[in-house]
Write a protein that binds this DNA or RNA. Structure first.
Length: 425
RNA sequence: GGAGGGGUGGCAGAGUCUGGUUGAAUGCACUGGUCUUGAAAACCAGCAUACCUUCACGGGUAUCGUGGGUUCGAAUCCCACCCCCUCCGCCA
């Protein structure tokens, strides 16, 4: 959610954002301004009437004490009339407020000035590439054949027991998951992140806070009877951890890492995109979240990005960094990087991390604030998050890129102590 | 799941029975000042959040877990819901 005051003062920038993000009609901004105007004039009228009613009620108390019965009675009558008006005005003000709030939820975040303007994924900027693409002297296999040959992942029984997209990891496959999770958490710990274990379900308020509701409702599994959603990312519980809180400047930055399974309905995807480990309904991810002061948020974004890129470099996976253009970056972000690893068996790039600065957009919804100085007014802080990392596609790339002529998989040095083996066969 | 108790400002804690200048006593913490070589102590003052209005000074509204209700007037009375605590039961 944007600051209404910002929209009032910089409506043309907000219109630019809507146009460049393809996030609806620019006309929305004018609707917001009108709704805001209407809401404020109603609020003023309502408060003036309330003020008069309060004054009348106070007079009654005083007149009663002084024993001026007649005056008290006429004041009671007057107060009754005012009360009826207040009730009407309250109702219309509430309607106006709701109308404004709903419109505000449709206004996207404004992209940072460094974000390229573009329409489609083609206009994302490849900002960095690491590593040489591997070459092989023998025919190579995609990971879904490797996992089957080596008995690492059982997709079919997963389908039987839960459904497509809910695989079993078996033996070394399961151990590889655990090794990666531990490696990622340890690396985050060394980098100063506080490790979190979070609830795997959240309520509607939390989903609204990070922006999954109302527009991305179809993404989430819902426990209807209990009003709970299975988390599609640890971002939701971890960011909402500090909903409605006020920090002092000394408390910041706060940096959390959290491993959780993630659940995504992913309605509407098909074909090679969902083959094997490429896209699952349940997958494991370590998420990194920063709470920072506004002036530090872009430095923090780069810091988080560097940390995640180091993980990929340690894993010796060729990857590229995309700076997402306005048209492909999503509703809530101000700036977003995607990291993609090379998948040799599929000869394509797979997204394994998405790293974003939300500026105040999420924090405003959640009322997460800080005081720049003791006694000063509380301000909305900035939130940043990124995957560090999502497992399935990392596993796919590790298997495909490190396959050997004899059918085994070599394990990158950094994982050997975690896995307890230097090769999987 | 059964029975009982409770949710008040950064924290602690009055006020609720007996509705009326109570946005809320008091203490602690915090900020500024006096004093002091400096500090402590003492003393004085300030110290919730959001919104509306005003060029500004200021004025106003709402908020005592949440939402409704009664009343001229609700932290205080009534209803529903949420959360916490104690005891019993069940259980990894």
């Amino acid at each position: 959610m944007l600051d209404i005051q910002f929209i009032r003062e910089q409506s043309s920038r907000v219109k630019d954002a809507i146009r460049n993000k393809h996030a609806g009609e620019e006309d929305l901004v004018d609707q917001v301004l009108e709704a805001d105007e209407a809401n404020r004039s109603l609020t003023t009228r309502m408060q003036e009437t309330q003020s008069a009613a309060n004054q009348a009620a106070r007079d009654i108390g005083r007149l009663m004490k002084e024993g001026l019965k007649d005056e008290a009675n006429s004041a009671i009558e007057e107060s009754g009339r005012l009360k009826a008006t207040v009730k009407e005005l309250e109702e219309s003000q509430r309607v106006a407020q709701n109308a404004l709030d709903e419109l505000l939820l449709e206004i996207p975040n404004v992209p940072h000035e460094s974000v390229p303007i573009g329409h489609s994924p083609d206009e994302n900027v490849v900002a960095f590439e690491f590593g040489d693409l591997p070459t092989f002297s023998f025919p190579i296999l995609p990971h879904w054949e490797l996992t089957e040959k080596l008995g690492l992942v059982d997709f079919d029984r997963g389908s039987k027991v839960a459904g497509a997209g809910f695989p079993f990891y078996v033996g070394w496959g399961a151990r590889l998951q655990r090794a990666l999770i531990n490696y990622f958490l340890d690396a985050a710990g060394t980098a100063g992140y506080t490790e979190i274990q979070a609830p795997l379900v959240v309520n509607a308020d939390s989903a609204r806070g990070t922006g999954q509701l109302p527009d991305k409702e179809d993404l989430m599994y819902e426990a209807v009877r209990d009003g709970l959603y299975l988390i599609p990312t640890a971002e939701i519980p971890v960011t909402n951890l500090h909903r409605d809180e006020i920090f002092s400047a000394d408390d910041l930055p706060i940096r959390y890492s959290a491993y959780t399974p993630c659940f995504r309905r992913e309605a509407g995807s098909y074909g090679k995109d969902v083959r094997g480990l490429n896209r699952l309904h349940q997958f494991d991810k370590v998420e990194l979240v920063h709470f920072v002061t506004p002036k530090n948020s872009y430095d923090a974004l780069e810091e988080l990005r560097t940390h995640v890129e180091n993980l990929l470099q340690e894993l010796k996976l060729p990857y590229r960094r995309l700076l997402m253009c306005t048209g492909d970056m999503g509703f809530t972000q101000s700036k977003k990087y995607d990291l993609e690893v090379w998948s040799a068996g599929q000869e394509r790039w797979l997204e394994v991390s998405s790293i974003s600065n939300f500026e105040a957009f999420q924090a405003r919804r959640m009322k997460i604030r800080y005081r720049p100085e003791d006694g000063s007014k509380a301000q909305i802080l900035h939130t940043i998050n990124g995957s560090g990392l999502a497992l399935p596609r990392i596993v796919a790339a590790l298997l495909e890129n490190n396959q050997q002529a004899d059918g085994s998989i070599s394990v990158p040095d950094v994982l050997i102590p975690y896995l307890g083996a230097d090769s999987i066969s």
